[in-house]
Design a protein around this nucleic acid. Sequence first.
DNA 1: TCCTCATATCGATGGTTATCGATGTAACCA
DNA 2: TGGTTACATCGATAACCATCGATATGAGGA
Lengths: 118, 118
Amino acid sequence: MNVPIIQSCCQPVLSEPLDGGEAIELAAAFKVLADPVRLLLLSLIANASAGEMCACDLVTPTGRSQPTVSHHLSILTDAGLLRREQRGKWVYFRVDPERIAVLRDALAPPSAGVVRNP
Amino acid sequence: MNVPIIQSCCQPVLSEPLDGGEAIELAAAFKVLADPVRLLLLSLIANASAGEMCACDLVTPTGRSQPTVSHHLSILTDAGLLRREQRGKWVYFRVDPERIAVLRDALAPPSAGVVRNP
DNA sequence: TCCTCATATCGATGGTTATCGATGTAACCA
DNA sequence: TGGTTACATCGATAACCATCGATATGAGGA
């Protein structure tokens, strides 16, 4: 997957018209969330007691092969939704809530925080 | 695309662990947003002066064929993100902001409105 | 240095979907 | 009734992506 880093790219969809480039960028960002395994990974990591999880503990609960889980963790990390930290042989992941907030903000209600006709 | 109606299915992803079914449902919902043409359609309709737009006026600004635009409008309508109203020969669409809010809420910050350990 | 284990990468495959031209359907009008 | 226009559906195609087994990489430990 072509995964650009998720960053604030535009006004909320419902508050101001998107141009073509913004639409492509936002769509790519939502595509990262459009997979059940990736949502499950985000949820597992976000709700882990230490706020982080070892990749080794993410294979079993997702029910996928180790390469598949590694693939999804890469996509989430490339998008900036996860932060990766290697400790010895192990890799730990934690969620970056600010990146998630960018996507959340793109869905803000109409005219929230936007002066349409100043 | 298999497009279930978008409805509140679960606690926010970052606040409580998802189960497999919830993850599948949420992923399908985000998949609806994971296309630039559909985001552009949502944006155009939400920002139209009358709060609605005729399908006939959505072909040119998206730069796609009429069948393709009709296809995407169907997906958005099936998901509940758009409301469809036929008036004579014409079909008008308006955004349902509550359905968008469901997706937005799924991305709520950790523990927002959720008591993790009561 | 060799072995083990955790993770990443590779190559192949099957399923999904965005897209289009052609055509069907249905509303309006003369 | 016949023509025109708006929209939906159909069938085909090309691109994309999740998935896996096999294998490479790289860190620790003996």
